[in-house]
Simulated scan of single mutants.
Amino acid sequence: MSVVPLLIESDEDLPFQDHFLRIRRLRHPAPAADDRPTLVFLHDSLGSIRLWRNFPARLAEALGCHALVYDRRGYGESAAFGPAPRTVRYLEEEALTVPAVLRAAGVGHCVLFGHSDGGTLALLTAANEPALVAAVVTVGAHVFVEDVTLAGIREAQHQFATTDLPQRLARYHGPRTEPLFRAWTDTWLHPTFRTWNVEHYLPRVQCPVLAVQGEADEYGTAAQVQAIVEQVSGPAQVALLLGLGHTPHRQNPEEVLRLATNFLREML
């Protein structure tokens, strides 16, 4: 599935509440795209628009849909974090803003495609706003904390202190790099976060869900995707990808594109 250069791509700063968010719009020229849900991509705890690479465009082209990709506050080229410190409920709090961001960007009915933190946000948003979300695709989402997750974050801390990881992240986040990295690690490794759990939201997810995870995910086990598909109310599928880690859409984009396209094509 190669990208035909038909999509119209534009980046802009979207005024939102008391700050701005960098967004990327991908518009498909086919008239039918106006009648289909918009694909919305929600990035991970260290992610950004640019770290998605061309994956959103490829999926939008394959499905004949418009797409929206955005940097959450504190990430990429969006405004820096606000003065309030991150709480252990930051994902539940962020999920409450997703519908408002979509309204500000002129997006109505949508499909949410989320990676890691973004996958959790997609599920929480679908639970909170069932009329808004036509379907959800998660990649490496978390609905509770596992020991392997915390071990992976401690290893990321070590790499941040001993390798060129800060410089590599700074290509995407600039001066926001250290604050966002600390916000992620300090929150997840705080003792009170060990009991964080959002499984009680899952029965409120009524739309179809595809839960994708790498079998060798360094931040979670298959218990995450099993919990998702067993507890959501709508139809759900698991795709556990052998030999892949926490970023299968970058490690094997062809396979994730195939899975997502086949899953979503049935409902668009």
Rank of each mutant, 00 (worst) to 15 (best):
S2H: 14
H109E: 14
H19L: 06
A183L: 05
E77S: 13
A60P: 03
T97H: 15
P166R: 08
V40E: 02
P191C: 01
P203Y: 08
G47K: 08
L264P: 08
T38D: 06
V145N: 09
L240K: 07
R27Y: 10
G64K: 05
T97K: 13
D11Y: 15
P248V: 03
P235R: 11
T187F: 07
T125L: 07
D147W: 01
V238C: 14
G243N: 10
Q157I: 08
E155N: 09
G47R: 08
A127R: 08
N128E: 14
L112S: 12
E155H: 14
V145G: 11
G106K: 02
L7D: 03
F55R: 02
G114Q: 04
T149S: 10
T149L: 15
E129S: 13
R171N: 07
V111T: 13
R182V: 06
L14W: 02
L46S: 12
S48N: 08
H158C: 00
P99L: 03
Y70K: 01
G47N: 07
F81W: 13
A100E: 12
R258N: 02
E129I: 00
F144V: 04
T97A: 15
R154D: 11
A84P: 01
R154T: 08
W196Y: 05
S48W: 10
F193G: 00
L264K: 01
L165D: 01
D35N: 14
V232M: 03
L102R: 02
R58H: 06
T125G: 07
V212S: 06
A216I: 06
L268H: 14
P31N: 02
A211Y: 11
S116V: 05
V133G: 09
R204V: 00
L63A: 02
E93S: 09
E230Y: 06
V143S: 07
L189Q: 07
N252S: 15
P29S: 12
P15V: 04
H43M: 04
G243P: 09
T138D: 08
L240T: 01
F263H: 13
L132W: 11
V225M: 05
G106P: 04
V209K: 06
G243Y: 11
H200W: 10
E93P: 05
D34P: 00
A156L: 15
T87W: 07
H43N: 07
V3N: 14
V229Q: 03
E9Q: 13
R103A: 15
E146R: 05
T221G: 15
